[in-house]
Design a protein around this nucleic acid. Sequence first.
DNA 1: CCATCTTACTTGAACTCTCAATAAAATGAA
DNA 2: TTCATTTTATTGAGAGTTCAAGTAAGATGG
Lengths: 149, 149
Amino acid sequence: MTRWLDDDEQRTWRAFMATSQLVNEELDRQLQRDSGMPHTYYVVLMKLSEAPDRMLRMSELAMELNSSQSRLSHAVARLEERGWVQRRPCATDRRVSWAFLTDEGFAVLAAAAPGHTEAVRQSFFDRLTPEQVRQLAEICEAVLGKADS
Amino acid sequence: MTRWLDDDEQRTWRAFMATSQLVNEELDRQLQRDSGMPHTYYVVLMKLSEAPDRMLRMSELAMELNSSQSRLSHAVARLEERGWVQRRPCATDRRVSWAFLTDEGFAVLAAAAPGHTEAVRQSFFDRLTPEQVRQLAEICEAVLGKADS
DNA sequence: CCATCTTACTTGAACTCTCAATAAAATGAA
DNA sequence: TTCATTTTATTGAGAGTTCAAGTAAGATGG
């Protein structure tokens, strides 16, 4: 006894999927073109830059990024090859790796940020009213299960 | 002179990115697990099932899916291997390929649809009020550039 | 103290997507 | 006609993601 989507839901669902795809693709293209990295890597660098001492355990980082450990592991391996991130062993628990944002990684992030932010504005915020921005936060947080509103 | 995101925008942006990722991953996992296909393939079958005679030119299909021709070409190649879609030459323009949804493909789609719909409800609509559903449609359509509201 | 369970992370293979290159047919201009 | 351009679609290589399996080290408990 499937409860199919009604017309409003259909409309919303298709629009949401299309938007999600469009925005992700635009950002990926912009970052790849202008900074030579996919959006996922940008977010990794971003999270690390905000962390104390610019470092985080792999598992914490994965958690904060809503990423699988596997994906993160592969990603950090490639970021390490580029010298943007460094893995450092943990003194107290030898299973743990710390991911550390290098100066070079920080510089790359700093160089990428303005263009990325501009892209986010152009493809997203410039098309919304402040009221819609507020509504969207509540909507997304509801979907994410933040017991908020 | 970068216009950085303010706090409201930050909050919305992170929530939107997280939601987009979460929902996509949940749907991909559900479809992969229960029907052995990624979400992208499901959408291909869906579009074809809605088309007259269950067939569409590759380029039309790509357009409607907001997909690159390359991506679609690869996808249809694999759907064809499974016997779910068939490519048929066009009589009047020999550059054109029609993608045709086979009976088997239709059956697979029909079998996948209830579980998929249930997943969409659980991970999305069940967490939103009707008012939010309406708001979200407007927001997404604004981002997509549908000169609507 | 040692066997077992759990945690943290990595690895490899299979798969999908992107981008650039290619091919082939239609279009259009000289 | 003929040759350049545009349209339609495919292909292959490189890159990223996923899933399942594997490694190593800390925690548990008899």
